[in-house]
Write a protein that binds this DNA or RNA. Sequence first.
DNA 1: CAAACCTTGACACAATCGTGGTAATGTTTG
DNA 2: CAAACATTACCACGATTGTGTCAAGGTTTG
Lengths: 116, 116
Amino acid sequence: MDALTIQEAAETTGWSARMLRYVERSGLVTPARSSSGYRLYGAAELQRLRTLKELLARFDIGLSDVAFAARMQSDDDLRQAVQDWLAAQPRRPEHVDAEEWLRFEQDKHEKLLAAA
Amino acid sequence: MDALTIQEAAETTGWSARMLRYVERSGLVTPARSSSGYRLYGAAELQRLRTLKELLARFDIGLSDVAFAARMQSDDDLRQAVQDWLAAQPRRPEHVDAEEWLRFEQDKHEKLLAAA
DNA sequence: CAAACCTTGACACAATCGTGGTAATGTTTG
DNA sequence: CAAACATTACCACGATTGTGTCAAGGTTTG
């Protein structure tokens, strides 16, 4: 199985060569290097690039989001701290005022409409 | 009264009133509302604001990062897709590839020369 | 050797994030 | 009632993300 240069990889994955370098800088897909420094994309990298593209599009998320998820996965302290913080909020505010505030908002809008 | 207005909450949490509204818009800390629409920060929200501030500072991450983590936690499909993608990652960059590729290339050249 | 690649670095630009302000207007309170 | 405070909506501005392009120079290859 041979490896593709950045331009070839770009053509077969739908990314631009510029973005392949950016993706690499983000730490998400790191191709091997030839002895003279050329990036070499193998089958594994190409597959990861294609699925990454699909992942971003499907959920409308960014490279930075996936990079953060990767950081959370590799940094135990970070993952623990974030999950602890998120876990401390399982339910919605149960305030009875919510409903009343909604009516208030509606009133405000009606007033604005009436004033026009 | 155990609920603070936005200005009082700002003073006791270290956030600015402006940022408390921004944090709310990010979906991370949502105070209750009075019947006239005023934000009401209770002990739980104040605590969450303080720990959130500490979390961001400690790991040098942004609100958007925590917001993404929250989205991953509540969206099963997203979490699954991201974790699947990350799980398919090669353990660690094996720099063996460059050498092997080099040998492969040399072989190819030798074969080509031999065939000529 | 020359064309066509590759590399890093830099300039550029739109969009978003993280903050701070101000304005117009409604609410609470001394 | 007036001062103080809330609300939303907007303007502003630096930093980051995502993307393109171009320059200067090394590499591969016909």
